[in-house]
């Protein structure tokens, strides 16, 4: 009896829905943009988390905002679960609406990007990380491990206890690779040891702080958080315990001006702006990974906090420059490589 009623309830719902759909279908153009706007350059972003996370996703948000400002482009973003099964539709929605450039801001979006890219040859699909390529599909990959390696060398000469602690959000390439690079750089001085830990969260500032304090209790005097805003808890702990820290992904010196020695900087906004310009000009060539490393000094570098400029030993800077030359010359292979070239 109950089931019959239920079916009735739902049948009514669906009858209504289909009725309304029938009325709506003849005029789907009503919701799409008028033809006059066809010339507008449109950029879409699939963000695997809140865009105001003061970390990974905010960087992507800043990228489309920069493109909007510099090129007068129409930009849009969607915050989507970091669950690869759901992103294919979002890629298609943007492509369907004539977006010329779509950024999928996670390596795990690459499978979906590859499938959708085949159907929309006039749209360029970019993934932040990944290895899949196609005529209109390319991953943007920063060589984070190499930059972090150089920062690790500075750390190696700034530590007194010889112990550093890396605090990652989750073990994804954008975190694990630079942490491995830092570790290798830090351990270039014999006897130094860098431990890598994970807090399994990007938002839990308390966990970031406690992870740093756990390290401090074990004698660590340098912490390297790479966990979006959760990492800022580690800076707070470092300030309170008067030890040192390194920033990651952007220049974070201002967050703890007398604690953060230097930060790795990966300028996604500039990189995406440059790509956007190529796409608009019609000169963009896909088919290969867009790798950005130390050779691009404006986009991937170590930003040293002015407060520490004079406090870093000359020997450290000398080793830093030597290692940089070797990496650029291809003589030094840094651990934590993302994908084969």
């Amino acid at each position: 009896m109950k089931n019959k009623r239920l079916i009735l309830v739902v049948a009514t719902l669906f009858a209504l829905a289909s009725l309304l759909t029938a009325q709506c279908t003849p005029k789907p153009e009503a919701t799409t943009a008028p033809p006059a706007e066809e010339k507008v350059f449109k950029v879409g972003l699939l963000s695997p988390g809140p865009v105001h996370d003061q970390g990974w996703n905010e960087v992507a948000y800043n990228s489309i905002k920069l493109i909007e400002k510099e090129m007068g482009a129409q930009v849009s973003y969607v915050e989507i679960e970091e669950t690869p099964s759901v992103v294919e539709k979002a890629f298609r929605d943007y492509a369907e609406q004539g977006y010329q450039m779509i950024i999928g801001h996670s390596f795990s979006f690459q499978d979906a990007a590859e499938i959708v890219a085949k159907d929309y040859p006039n749209t360029v699909f970019l993934t932040s990380g990944g290895e899949k390529v196609g005529p209109n599909l390319a991953p943007v990959v920063f060589k984070e491990n190499e930059v972090a390696y150089l920062m690790g060398i500075i750390g190696a000469y700034m530590t007194k206890s010889g112990k550093a602690l890396g605090i990652g959000g989750e073990e994804i390439p954008a975190v694990a690779n630079p942490q491995l690079g830092f570790k290798a750089g830090f351990e270039t001085v014999p006897g130094n040891e860098c431990t890598l830990t994970y807090i399994n969260s990007w938002e839990d500032i308390g966990a970031g702080k406690e992870a740093a304090m756990a390290g401090i209790a074990a004698g660590v005097d340098i912490v390297v958080p790479n966990a979006n805003i959760a990492g800022q808890g580690a800076f707070q702990a470092a300030q309170e315990a008067k030890i040192l820290a390194f920033g990651t992904n952007m220049d974070q010196s201002s967050l703890a001006p007398e604690t953060i020695i230097a930060s790795t900087v990966f300028d996604y906004p500039q990189a995406y702006l440059a790509i956007a310009k190529e796409i608009q000009a019609g000169t963009f060539k896909g088919g290969k990974m867009i790798g950005i490393g130390l050779e691009n000094e404006q986009a991937a570098y170590v930003a040293i906090n002015p407060f520490f400029k004079d406090k870093i030993p000359a020997e450290a800077m000398q080793k830093f420059e030597e290692a940089k030359k070797k990496i650029l010359a291809g003589e030094l292979e840094v651990p934590g490589k993302m994908v084969p070239d």
Binding site: E81, T83, P84
Partner: peptide
């Protein structure tokens, strides 16, 4: 759908 396992296969 996905054809492979990721760390986050379900958004809840």
């Amino acid at each position: 759908l996905t054809g492979r396992l990721f760390a986050h296969i379900s958004p809840g």
